[in-house]
Design a protein around this nucleic acid. Structure first.
Lengths: 162, 162
DNA sequence: CAGTATCCTGTCCGATACTG
DNA sequence: CAGTATCGGACAGGATACTG
């Protein structure tokens, strides 16, 4: 994610990608949601080179998605736990999961989402929180928000497909 | 996304990342949903180097997210339109948008989701399609699906935080 | 206008070796 | 066990020049 002009990235999607743009980061978060917390757990699960894991973990900590928690003093040992910001990332993973299952699992789903108590499979879709109306391509679009600058505003004005 | 063992990636999230793991890809899709279709529209909007744009567009076409559509014969000119697979990616963008707005927009949201007819802002959340129940961290977890192999099964068995 | 062709730099990433 | 240090390769990504 080496970009020249991070400053002008008003778009929230671009800003999100600044934090999780590298795909290792997302896989680490996925595993963190599975309950993994320790360095070697991640390493074994991901088969990632240790130096890369260090780098990605540090980046996630700096971005505030993971929190280092010392569980041993001598020697000093840390584990990595999700912060609130990290936990809020889960819908993105759910969306990726659903999309992957639909389009890239010809042999059937290998991982599904289930109700943790009943075990019933769930089928995640996005709705508007207040109305409960499903978000569909046609019914909803993105638009400049209250804090949009002139550039962002123009972007949207130029070509909104209705 | 140069990985040694793509073959053993049963995880649907990892498979998704194979297609959209590079952050330019996601930004291109974002713009495609804004209605952009042509090379120079993307280039101006993203300020991306033309060779990179070519590469990413080709990758998205190969992955079946975009479709090349010739709109001129002499000279041959293509535009890039979303396929169904590409359009199905939208929930991921919505999730990223919501997450970015919540966590990385101290000055307020610059881009929001609105009802395309009324203009009312929407607040996207994920629910189970059949029950309508909101997906929360505690109520739902991922689990091996019908097509899970032994490895995937063990992964989940090892440590499900209930 | 819609790209292709080169060249270059940074860094992502893997492999390996080492340390308390 | 939980990392750090170092090396090297591949490629993402940028800049620029060129073409029908």
């Amino acid at each position: 994610m080496q970009r020249k002009n991070l400053g002008d990235m008003q778009c929230p999607i671009a800003r999100s990608l600044e934090r999780v743009g590298e795909w290792w980061s997302i896989l680490i978060l996925r595993d963190a949601f599975q309950g993994l917390t320790r360095f070697d757990q991640f390493q074994k699960s991901l088969e990632i080179a240790p130096n890369m894991l260090t780098k990605r973990l540090n980046a996630l900590v700096e971005s505030g998605l993971l929190e280092r928690r010392q569980y041993s003093e001598h020697p000093p040992r840390d584990e990595y736990v999700l912060t609130e910001r990290g936990r809020d990332f889960r819908p993105v993973l759910w969306a990726l999961l659903a999309w992957g299952n639909k389009h890239f699992a010809p042999e059937g789903a290998s991982v599904v989402l289930v109700d943790s108590e009943t075990g019933t499979p769930a089928d995640p879709i996005m709705v508007d929180r207040t109305t409960g109306r499903p978000l569909t391509e046609l019914a909803f679009k993105s638009a400049p928000g209250p804090a949009a600058d002139e550039r962002t505003r123009r972007r949207h004005a130029a070509r909104s497909p209705s």
